[in-house]
Every structure is written in C-alpha cells, then in structure tokens.
Design a binder for these strands. Structure first.
Lengths: 147, 147
DNA sequence: TACAAGATTTGGATAGACCCCAAAAAATGG
DNA sequence: CCATTTTTTGGGGTCTATCCAAATCTTGTA
C-alpha cells in the first residue's frame, strides 16, 4: 500500500473538494462557479476530472456529491488547511494572513508532513478557521508505527 | 511603491535563480541542465524569461549571471527557503523532510509572511541547510513601521 | 402539457508553464 | 581551420485552468 502523500489534487481541485464538502449534500455547478467567480463550463470540466478520480459522483444537470473516498479526502484537505494555518499563526502570522497563505500553498504539503506537525502541536482541536478533527490514521503513529 | 510580495517567480524559476546564486559568477546552460536533469534547450528558454524579467544577464553561448536585482532577489529566495525549513523543523519535521517540503511550496509564500515568521523566530542565524542572513528590509518592521 | 427561461454541458480555443527532439549556429581546442 | 562540444532555434507536446458560443436538459407555469 502506497503511503498516500496527499498531493494528488491540484490547488484548484482542492478548493473545489473542500467547498463541496463544506456545502454538504448535492452541490450544483452554478453554486461552485459563483463561489469561485469562474465560468460554469470550467466547473463542469473540472468536475468531470474529479469524478474520474473517484472523488465525486456527478449526475449531469443535477449536481455532484462526494463519494466515500472523496469525503475522507476532503476531511484530510480541511485538516491540512487548518493545521497549516494554525502553525502559521503560532509562528507569527495574523489569523487572516495565515488562512490566506495556507490556502496558497497547502496543496503542496504532504500528508506525512501534516501528520508530523499535527503531532508536534499536540493534535489541537481548535483551529483558527474551524475545529480540527483527528482520525486514527493520524494518531496511530503515536504508538511506534514503522515510518 | 508596491509591497513586493515575492511571488513573481514560478517554482522552477526560483530553483534556477537559487542555483545560479549559489553557484556564483557566470553559470553555463549545461551546468543548470545537468543539475536539474532537464534538456539544455529548456534551460535556454527559461533563462530568456528570467533575463526578460531583469533577474539575469544572459550572454548567448557564454552563460548567465545575476543582475543586481537578481542577486537581491536570490538572497530573499534563499532566506525564504531557510526560514520555512527551519519553521518546519521547529514544528516537528526532520531536517531533510523540512527542506524537501519547503522546496515544494516556498514559491507560494509571500515575503510578508516570511518576514513575520522570521521575526517570530527571533531572526535566527542558523538554518538547517545554511546560514540565514537578515537585511534592513526584514528588520525595519521591528521599530514600528506602517504595515 | 407544452414552452420559455434558466441551468448545465459540449465543443472549440487560448494561455502559461514545462519539457523534449532535431537541426542550425557558435565557440574552442588542437 | 576544422572537428567536437555547447548552446540556441524551431517545432511539438502535455497539463491545468479558463472563456465563449451553441446545444441540451430541467422546470415552473400558463
């Protein structure tokens, strides 16, 4: 089993997945297009790629919703954003700055790095733009896992 | 005067500028091509863009060297890399990991953020992959500058 | 229920960043 | 002064992200 580095999605796709997750349920193309000020046709195309990747289920003309995989991944994406934002705040940035900066580069930070930072910070529950949740995956390294 | 956010160069160009700076003096196309395992023609093209941006002086068939601007910028790029790597180490990553992760996303971190982190860490001199130098630009915020 | 209006998708294009290959051009050491 | 090496040119490619216009699907409603 490959380590799952968490770098499979481009920055844009990460934003879309997080948006769909946070909106919840079935999300319509226009909703995403409006939220990101992008042409609906662009969204349709990107959605097709996300569907091909198994992250979402897309019913043409009706909207998309996350698959089981997509949901699990979305949780990671959001946690990554919050952990990184929190780290930045704890290292001198203002909350809004931290959130903004993290959004810019988070898609390039590996899961392993996020887990280490999360561990180092003591698995904080309170992020600066929402609560942080911790699954086994992130806690299991605690009890002497391999890597 | 615009704030100079430090996001003008792509990740690849950042690597090239840092490499040229660290190599010092006049650097030849092949040297860069070899260092990054990329076709020389690709380097020539990217070099043309960096020259157009005023970062380097390119004498065809002879090599490139940084301009005054390029040198100043290179110093920032290297400092950014070291500050971010150091922050990651201080937040739980192993040195090599930190360096590798920082290289991936550093091009997307603003100068302002770097300055804040640098300030927060107390303007450290010892990075994990080299010494960190601090210019006025980064220290002046200390004595109550505007932003 | 048929249709107009609105939402969505298709198809066609563009743009930027990177990259490669083959061939031309320049530099250089004998 | 020429063969070898280095570099540049010219021509393609891929990928991601976007836009526009035209087709297509849904739906509320008359």
């Amino acid at each position: 089993m490959e380590p799952e580095c968490g770098l499979a999605l481009s920055a844009r796709k990460v934003e879309y997945i997080k948006f769909i997750f946070e909106t919840g349920g079935t999300v319509r193309t226009t909703m995403i297009a409006t939220a990101f000020s992008v042409d609906p046709s662009t969204i349709t195309k990107t959605l097709a790629e996300l569907a091909a990747g198994g992250y979402i289920r897309h019913v043409p003309y009706h909207g998309v919703c996350l698959t089981e995989t997509g949901e699990r991944h979305a949780e990671f994406l959001i946690k990554r954003h919050r952990i990184l934002s929190l780290m930045l705040v704890r290292n001198g940035l203002l909350p809004e700055e931290a959130c903004r900066e993290a959004s810019q580069f988070e898609s390039l930070v590996s899961k392993k790095a996020v887990d280490r930072i999360c561990h180092f910070m003591g698995h904080p529950r309170q992020g600066i733009c929402g609560e942080i949740t911790h699954d086994n995956d992130c806690l299991e390294r605690e009890e002497g896992a391999s890597s």
